[in-house]
Design a protein around this nucleic acid. Sequence first.
DNA 1: AGCCCTATTGACAATTTTGTAAATAGTGTT
DNA 2: AACACTATTTACAAAATTGTCAATAGGGCT
Lengths: 234, 234
Amino acid sequence: MSKTNFKILEKPKRRRRTPASARREILDAAGRQLTKAGPDGLRLQTIAADLAISHSSILHHFGSRDGLLDALSKDAFAGLERDLKQSFAQPSSGDPATDLFDKIAEILSERGYARLLAWQLMSGRGPGESVAADSAGGAAQSTVGDESETGGLLDRLAPTVHALRLDHARDQGMSAPEIDETRRLLAFTACAVFGEAFAGELMLHASGLPHDTDSRTQFRHWVAKTIETQVFPD
Amino acid sequence: MSKTNFKILEKPKRRRRTPASARREILDAAGRQLTKAGPDGLRLQTIAADLAISHSSILHHFGSRDGLLDALSKDAFAGLERDLKQSFAQPSSGDPATDLFDKIAEILSERGYARLLAWQLMSGRGPGESVAADSAGGAAQSTVGDESETGGLLDRLAPTVHALRLDHARDQGMSAPEIDETRRLLAFTACAVFGEAFAGELMLHASGLPHDTDSRTQFRHWVAKTIETQVFPD
DNA sequence: AGCCCTATTGACAATTTTGTAAATAGTGTT
DNA sequence: AACACTATTTACAAAATTGTCAATAGGGCT
């Protein structure tokens, strides 16, 4: 048959990435899909389609779907910690504490970290691992101790914040707070910030408040301020 | 050959449920799987296995997998609202507000509501969606218009709480707060309570605090108290 | 008892998804 | 230029998952 195939036009162009950048792109796409389409978006095909590559390529770089998900989990935590540390390091303009909470809240909600975290928690591949009743053993590997790292993030933050609180209390002529109270406040703050990042828009909406991007940012600022008055009471 | 099949022992025993109770059991099992195994547990086979029935039975009652998930979403909201309303109705011993927050937090975290809510939010079948067009009316599902109901839950709560705040402010000789401030506080409270319910254990753990059941309950009480002082400042 | 309705099941089809193996094609090296 | 290495793809196999359909059986009814 008159095969009208113009070999000239054929473009078997492949883009060849370095293993590192390939993994990065794939992880990014996976995170993107997760935050956009939810846990159901975490199919090899979906992710591959998002990058316009074949799913086999993903398997080549991560061995298996589970390998990818594990890497995604690890990567999310690494990224979160990196961004947080960077935020900690940056000089804050204005109220130091408020500004910090502000940044953290933004990091959590802006990039997909809140959803990534939620997914990890839900699918049981996160740091929490209540380890309640695992039917058939199986997953006994867990290459790295990410848990201890992240598990202690707030813990490592506690002394610093507590020192600030002690200073503050002295300045205000108040009695010195307990370290555990500071810990509780940190845990509470983390819960609130996470909740805001994950469900803030819904809650604003449910309260009858405007929930566009600007209002959301404004709300975040207000939340940061509110929490600050808890941690550093007048 | 020597087929040692004792027909006497054969137990083709089927349990025949009413459609209502079948749906209920299936929805419960689905919720159970979701909170236990995460979104990946939401396979027809998994749910069916949990109930020791065939997956066809589920399809019979819900038409399709999506039908089940929709029903699960609706049911979760209905249940949450029911439990909340019941909690609202019950007389509170002690601080009314604190007690209420307390109960809400417990409801959210104890039963799987927090995770159900999170799943809904992530998979995009939550209430934040159908917000706009409620007047469509085409879908005459018997259940209820849960979205609109819940979407305005905090909104409908606002006047009540605000009245309390006005009274409180007068008693304390403070200037009257704005209604939007009350709304923001409600939204904030919702975020915090949800965050605590969903990730409280992790956060406690991350802060270096004990995270057993008792400590968790204690922490919830403390959170409730803390929030109360925000809503009703001294 | 016999009959009807339908919840339930088992077997099967269709589609999706993960995984495997060999072929293809960039990229750097000699 | 020829070669080696391997990222990438294509084609295919295997498993899992959803959905269909006819047969089975539980429970209410007369």
